[in-house]
Design a protein around this nucleic acid. Structure first.
Lengths: 167, 167
DNA sequence: ATGAATGCAAAGGTTTTGCACCCCC
DNA sequence: GGGGGTGCAAAACCTTTGCATTCAT
């Protein structure tokens, strides 16, 4: 099975295991809400569903657009507020590019032992595992006298075969 | 030079090599400007100096603030325009987080490494560079026919020496 | 002298906030 | 019923654009 990426090249589609994304976050979110005396509402749930199904980093603007597209009745203000809540619940991880700068978010639940390549041109995400890389990583960390436990490795890269596409 | 971590152990503080950032970009920029019939102006030069001395990716907001701080007479509009020029000159690389989303920039001349170990016990963040690791990473990515541009690599780990340290 | 570049201010977007109403508990 | 949540609209903030002026060539 293969797929043509927006940037032109083809790649094998890694057959992901059954999508159970809906299963994992809802109990955690509801537990958090209960603990905090907050409420499980429909808009909150819908926004969480979209945000937490993202496969990697996203910015709020993108999320606002996605939500508005699927649920026009949900206001941008609610999206912003829900993202804040999800961060507090540790279901989203916020990445500040710099102090006072722009933030990106990504779902926290993902398996932390994957390496990812993100295509800068088409935003496609490719998960991979490379044992040489893994080994080099472990050696480097151990030489600093640490024992690696888990890691997050995202490499932003450009297609070498880029045939150039639309905007 | 060394520093004591909250979890007790000491570590060396990495000493960065001589800063030669000022040397490299100006001729390239001026060459570009001449080729395009554009002009070498003082604001342009100053903004370029700040932007191109960044050690890794940054967002425009941050740059605008930095410029305004050092050169309050330079208007934000000029910063935005200059960043555009620097991208065309290939002195800055723009990376879109997502279609229509936020952009980050990084100096193209810089080969930047973002490897971090985060100590699970004391939360300390240790930046490091390991050329074997870097090489393994590049090989892995290139074998997928991508060219690495930047990466975020965070390894959560535990101090091997934890406990048996003196202050 | 000429036309590109700049600062300023206004316009166009995005994000936050205040508030009246709604709805989950 | 009460207090948190929501949509709306206004405010605050960020980015782009138009224009008169300045400045590099």
């Amino acid at each position: 099975m293969s797929k043509t990426l927006p940037c032109g090249r083809k790649r094998a589609v890694s057959q992901s295991k059954t999508d159970r994304s809906g299963d994992l976050w809802r109990p955690r979110l509801n537990e958090f809400l209960k603990k905090k005396g907050l409420r499980a509402t429909r808009p909150r749930d819908l926004v969480a569903g979209i945000a937490l199904s993202k496969k990697s980093h996203f910015d709020i603007q993108t999320l606002v657009k996605d939500v508005s597209f699927r649920y026009p009745e949900i206001s941008p203000a609610t999206v912003y507020r829900t993202v804040g809540t999800l961060c507090e619940a540790d279901l989203l991880t916020e990445t500040m590019q710099s102090k006072g700068g722009v933030s990106l978010y990504e779902p926290s639940l993902e398996d932390e032992h994957h390496d990812h390549v993100v295509c800068i041109d088409c935003n496609e995400i490719i998960e991979f595992h490379d044992s040489n890389l893994e080994r080099a990583q472990n050696r480097a960390v151990e030489s600093m006298e640490f024992k690696p436990v888990r890691h997050r490795h995202v490499i932003y890269a450009r297609c070498l075969k880029l045939g150039k596409v639309e905007d």
